[in-house]
């Protein structure tokens, strides 16, 4: 697939918009089981990403993703900055300029492994990995944009009955059960925004 400059800019605006518009929701999720800063932190990071436009979209897709990752690492703070930032940076490192679907599957897998290493975590611990891992399975299995977006939303929902093992919510033990993981929610928002944009903008 190939993304021209206009599509790259749309992608950046969609990613940032999805998080910024839901900042209050992310904050209230985080107030339930974390320290209540997830919405604000992610919003700050993606506002910095938006501020890097239009120059950001002049870069090639891999370079653009790396730059987004670096901005998130530097601006988001909390544990989410390094985790989400690492995902984008590693995706950028692994993708060619005009990736095939197979390239996307392979690069996403590498990026997920990097997030696991950064957070010393695995799926099943009530973190964003509980969205990334099942979404990757749908992507690798040939699922279309609709199937990927649906899996992202459902995977975030499935974190609600889980007990947190990593991250701040793990301090709560069993009391973390019954609340959706904020990091999973923001990951599902970003994935939803990405596939929606790519579905209409990609020339195969």
């Amino acid at each position: 697939m190939s993304l021209d400059r206009g599509a790259r800019e749309k992608l950046v605006r969609a990613l940032a918009g999805s998080v910024i518009e839901h900042a209050d929701e992310l904050t209230s999720l985080d107030q339930a089981i974390g320290d209540g800063d997830h919405g604000l932190n992610m919003k700050r990071g993606f506002e910095a990403v938006l501020a890097a436009l239009p120059g950001l979209a002049d870069k090639s897709l891999p370079e653009m993703l790396k730059a987004i990752g670096m901005t998130l690492v530097m601006k988001v703070g909390g544990a989410s900055g390094p985790l989400v930032g690492t995902f984008f940076m590693e995706l950028g490192k692994a993708l060619p300029e005009q990736p095939s679907r197979a390239d996307l599957v392979a690069a996403t897998e590498k990026a997920i492994e990097a997030v696991k290493a950064r957070g010393r975590s695995e799926a099943g611990q009530k973190t964003l990995l509980d969205v990334l891992v099942p979404v990757h399975a749908v992507l690798a299995g040939g699922g279309d944009a609709k199937a990927i977006a649906a899996e992202a939303a459902q995977a975030a929902d499935r974190t609600t009955p889980m007990q947190a093992i990593r991250g701040r919510a793990s301090f709560l033990g069993e009391r973390s059960i019954g609340h959706m993981d904020p990091g999973s929610r923001s990951a599902s928002l970003l994935i939803g925004a990405a596939v929606e944009t790519l579905e209409f903008e990609v020339t195969p």
């Binding site: 320290d35 800063d37 700050r44 703070g77």
Partner: peptide, 12 residues
Amino acid sequence: GDVDGGLGTNVA
């Protein structure tokens, strides 16, 4: 502190 001066930590 975070980059806005609130509670948090930042890489820079």
